[in-house]
Simulated scan of single mutants.
Amino acid sequence: MRKIPHIALLIETSREYGRGLLRGVARYQQEHGPWSIFFEPHGLDDPPPEWLRDWDGDGILARVNSGRMANTILETGLPAVDVRGALPGLGLPFIGVDNRPIAHLAFQHLVDCGLRNFAFCGTPRGENPNQDLRCQYFVELVQSEGSECFTWLGSNTHPTTTTWEEQQQQIASWLRTLPNPVGIMTCHDDRGQQVLDACRRAELVVPDEVAVVSVDNDPYLCNLCTPPLSSIDVNPSRIGYESAALLAKLISGEKPKLSTVLLGPPRGIAARRSTDTLAIDDLEVAAAIRFIREHAVEGIRVSDVIARADRSPSTLERRVKSILGRTIKAEITRVRLARAKLLLSETELSIAKIAARTGFAEAKYFCEVFRKHESTTPTEFRHRFREE
């Protein structure tokens, strides 16, 4: 084997997920390389490059999306890792996201918006295992709460002959049949953008009548939407890093213990205006919850929330718990910790500064609360989720 491994990256750059994978691979090779990288921008559905058939390299990282691409990679006989997971039984080790916590995060986010009607909009079954699992897990969560989950997955019959306009009309027709307000999870940002467009066609107001949360958190696509789309950040950089680490082991002759490795949980949810709603009939409770979410990081206490209400403290506390499933104090803590996790993963602020910016009286108390709820310390959390 050469002193410097030659690695081919067959990963598209058209979406944030692929770019995140590449950032993770870059970080790995900067820390453990150098590698000689063979890379040229391409789309997910592009055919395998002609040079790959006779390429004298050492390993391949690929988003395998077709049998043709899979066969070409397998025919090289080189160590390879799949970071797509679209083809079951491919014969290559796969590293990807764990879809169960992704579905749980989406469901909990919609529940926190006060929603009690739920739906899932995805792609035809069998088209992609990851998207199938997101639908399955989300439906199971809704049903476990005693509710019905409405689904729209398109059709396998003539997917290539259905135009954009026809599909948008189909989604709009489906949306009109749903009870509202309704919270919808979509399988990815592309479908989320379609749902928001279909809401306009169906004359449904987002987020008051329809709240939408998607997956992948592509900032360009999410912010092109009207209104901007809330989305789950699945931390693709970590997947890219771990897949590069696995490829390095394969090149050295080590055999993987598992053919499939699922990494999780997701980094969190980027909440934008598509879910900026509180679908709660009790106006006083809705006002209390909104006050918490707007001011929790300022160090407010339960007494500050109760002081704004006309009801007795016990009545307000009981109604909040009935709607959210947790107490006023627990909701304040949840909002603070959500903000703290975002600051830990995206900034270089010290633990003490993060504690101060999220409403905790002192860093020691912040660390105690964080460990209690997250089963890890703030420093360990930062190390685990930091992208670069």
Rank of each mutant, 00 (worst) to 15 (best):
F94N: 00
G85M: 05
L87M: 13
H109I: 01
G114I: 11
G91R: 14
G91M: 03
R100W: 08
P101W: 08
F118A: 06
L115Q: 05
I95V: 15
F94S: 04
A103L: 04
V97T: 12
P101C: 10
I102R: 01
A86R: 14
L105M: 14
Q108R: 15
L115I: 07
C113F: 09
H104Q: 09
N99R: 13
H109C: 10
C113G: 12
H109R: 11
R116Y: 01
L115S: 07
P101R: 10
N117F: 14
H109Y: 09
A86P: 00
R116C: 02
V111W: 05
A119W: 07
D98Y: 07
D112P: 00
A103D: 03
F107I: 06
L90Y: 01
G89T: 11
L105E: 14
Q108M: 11
A106E: 08
N117R: 09
G96R: 11
C113H: 05
P93S: 12
A86Y: 01
L87W: 03
A106F: 14
F94Q: 01
P101F: 07
R116N: 08
G91K: 08
F118L: 10
G89I: 05
L87G: 02
Q108C: 11
H104F: 08
A103Q: 14
L90R: 04
P101S: 13
R116I: 07
G96Q: 07
R116P: 00
P101V: 06
G89P: 02
P101N: 13
N99S: 14
A119N: 01
F107N: 02
C113W: 04
N99D: 15
L90Q: 12
H109L: 13
N99W: 03
F118W: 11
A86F: 02
G114A: 09
A103F: 10
R84G: 05
L87F: 14
V97K: 10
V97S: 15
G85N: 01
A86L: 03
L115F: 08
F94W: 15
I102N: 04
P88I: 10
A103M: 07
F107V: 02
